[in-house]
Amino acid sequence: MTTPAATAVSEIELRFPGVDRDLAGTVTLPGGAGPFPAAVLVSGSGPVDRDSNAPRLAIDSTRQLAHALARAGIATLRYDKRGVGQSRLLRDGATEGRNGWMRVGLFDNADDVAAAFTALAARPDVRAGQLFLVGHSEGAILVTIAAARMADAATGPRPAAVVLLAGAARPGDAVLRRQAGMLAPTLPAPVRGLLKLLRTDLVRQVGRNHDKIRATSTDIARVGGARLNAKWFREYLGYDPRADLARLRIPVLAVTGSKDLQVDPADLAAIAEIVPGPVQTWLAPEVTHMLRTQPGPPSLRAYKEEVRRPVDPGLLDRVATWLTDQAPAS
């Protein structure tokens, strides 16, 4: 959805520091005179920057979403995660070094969503009462946590609506076990053959690794020969989003692709049942976890090819139209 007065897009760099982090992001503004309705955009898991780009996979979804929303007259703030890009993780007053993101937990990330929301709400070019949260994958979990916390807060800004893109409605350990089961058939044939030869059940192995992670106590740990952000995994494995979804009495849009291997599209129905506020769900046809369409069978191996194409225009339009409906002109 594009409004004639909102075709020009401008961007402003923004920093919002805290005691244990110094976050950097980009405010994207529509053309014309503000104040504008506005949204914080939250990326998925891992070392992703404000555009949802990781070192080996340039997903670019939040940048494309920011520009689509700006063309629809909605301002946005997207930001680098702690220890990624220009954002810094601070420990004892000093900047954490390389791979600082690995020391950050799930609930630290949720704190940063709230900090970004507060920073956006303080700007004179955004419209109080028409502020939103939009999250993809882990970002959908984070905005659920943040929105539920803000709903219970005595003071401070609160979101008027939430968008969950590929948002799960089951505990983290169940999500990861399902992912293992869905991804196993898409592995290269030699890998599948080796697993069969070794009589290795991938889902069962993932469960064993979860037990090892739960037994750790440090921010970073080595499990199964791999160095992991153990704090994040411990918190994610034990987190059940259903309790926080049940606290959302504001409008919610939940969108998951029909070919999403990482989040069960059936969770859309669960979200609709759990959330007490007005809910709209959409099963995006042919769309994968990368928010792109995939004409063939979904496969993790196709991600690098998928991200060369733009985010599905229908998905961008659905989100922009729904948010515009939540922000009637004053």
Rank of each mutant, 00 (worst) to 15 (best):
V48Q: 11
V9D: 00
R222D: 13
V134D: 02
S330L: 15
Q262W: 05
V191K: 09
V27R: 03
A226N: 06
G193M: 10
P265I: 06
A184K: 10
A5S: 14
R199T: 02
P310C: 15
L41T: 03
A254F: 07
V279S: 09
D173C: 02
V279T: 09
R15H: 12
R158V: 14
L164I: 06
V40I: 06
S61D: 13
V42D: 09
L268T: 05
P297V: 13
D240S: 00
T2G: 06
P17L: 04
L77W: 09
T3E: 14
L202D: 05
E273P: 05
V134F: 08
Y79C: 07
V223D: 04
D219M: 10
V223P: 03
A94M: 11
A38K: 03
M290V: 13
I145A: 05
A153M: 11
T288Q: 09
A221T: 10
L283P: 05
A146L: 08
G25C: 03
L41E: 04
E11A: 15
A184G: 00
I271R: 00
Q64H: 12
R208N: 08
T62G: 05
L283I: 00
T144F: 02
A58E: 10
L65M: 14
V9C: 05
S137P: 03
G257S: 10
P55A: 13
D244I: 03
Q130K: 12
L198H: 05
H289M: 10
V206Y: 04
A146S: 12
A115D: 15
M102V: 00
P35N: 10
A329L: 14
D51H: 09
D219T: 09
Q262G: 02
H136C: 02
P310H: 15
S299I: 07
V48R: 12
E96C: 13
G34M: 11
R308K: 15
T95C: 12
G93H: 11
Q205R: 15
L23S: 05
R98E: 13
F107D: 08
D152W: 01
V175T: 05
M1P: 11
P278N: 07
L176T: 05
Y236F: 14
K259R: 13
P297I: 12
D111Y: 12
T256P: 01
Q294Y: 09
S43T: 14
L187F: 07
I274Y: 04
H67G: 03
P188S: 02
A160R: 15
D108E: 14
D317N: 13
A246T: 00
A166Q: 01
V275H: 05
A147W: 07
P171Y: 00
F36D: 08
P297H: 13
L29T: 12
R82W: 10
R82T: 08
G224P: 02
L228I: 11
A58I: 12
A154W: 04
T26I: 12
A6L: 02
L291C: 07
L248P: 11
L142R: 01
A70C: 07
M1L: 12
T293F: 02
F16E: 08
I250Y: 01
A215P: 10
G224K: 03
E306D: 15
A146T: 09
D317R: 14
A33K: 09
A70W: 07
P4A: 15
L194S: 06
R192P: 00
P55H: 11
P17W: 06
R318V: 01
T62M: 15
T293H: 04
V40M: 08
L248V: 01
G46A: 02
R71V: 00
H210E: 11
R98P: 00
D244E: 12
G85L: 05
L197G: 08
T118P: 06
D51T: 09
